[in-house]
């Protein structure tokens, strides 16, 4: 059961007034969210995930006065996480490549026109794939369901799902992701 934005914000407001228990509870929850956030984006460097979670928690702590009490908490947290993520890429001297699922999950926190554009881009890109591959990628990458669930819902074996997902992504990379796949 996931804590809601409203609950988290209440914890943060109490923490800003000095309530250490509320603060610890909030950090404990954010830690899990941040772990998921970085894991989805750093499949190639799982070692960096925990470092980035910690760096982000420290940044949240040191810069907590920049939280505007009139605003929602999670967009503030994710903006810091995103900054740390990009900083991590930059330090590694690598091209910044924000994967497809990034744009989709940003929708949870921001409904700016940029996110709407990104959404439209994703749908346009997905529409170019064969029907079955599209449903498969949608299930895996956008709904973030597991391979097993996806396999069951599409009546395929798990191995076939993995292969098809890999080929589908490879095909997308070849067509849209110039220079993105350097592995």
């Amino acid at each position: 059961m996931e804590t809601s934005e409203a609950d988290l914000k209440i914890l943060m407001l109490a923490a800003l007034d000095g309530d250490a228990r509320a603060y610890r509870a909030m950090l404990g929850d954010l830690r899990l969210r941040l772990g998921g956030y970085f894991q989805r984006r750093l499949r190639r460097d799982p070692d960096d995930v925990e470092d980035l979670v910690q760096e982000t928690l420290i940044a949240i702590h040191k810069r907590r006065e920049t939280f505007d009490k009139a605003q929602a908490l999670t967009p503030w947290v994710y903006a810091i996480a995103r900054y740390k993520l990009i900083d991590n890429y930059r330090r590694a001297g690598r091209r910044v490549f924000v994967p497809l699922d990034d744009a989709a999950s940003e929708l949870r926190v921001e409904d700016e026109s940029a996110a709407v554009d990104a959404r439209r881009d994703i749908e346009r890109v997905l529409a170019e794939l064969p029907e079955r591959t599209r449903r498969l990628l949608h299930s895996l990458k956008i709904e973030e369901r597991s391979v097993a669930e996806t396999a069951a819902s599409l009546g395929m074996s798990e191995g076939a799902v993995k292969v098809a997902a890999h080929r589908g992504l490879r095909g997308l990379m070849d067509r849209f992701g110039a220079g993105a796949n350097d592995d």
């Binding site: 000095g18 309530d19 250490a20 950090l27 910690q54 702590h61 006065e65």
Partner: peptide, 22 residues
């Protein structure tokens, strides 16, 4: 490791005044 960090951060908590940025 992250648990230790969360412990350290929450024991370092001091109230933050409103309007600090401004």
């Amino acid at each position: 490791m992250t648990d230790d960090l969360i412990d350290r951060l929450s024991s370092d908590l001091r109230p933050v005044r409103t309007g600090g940025v401004v």
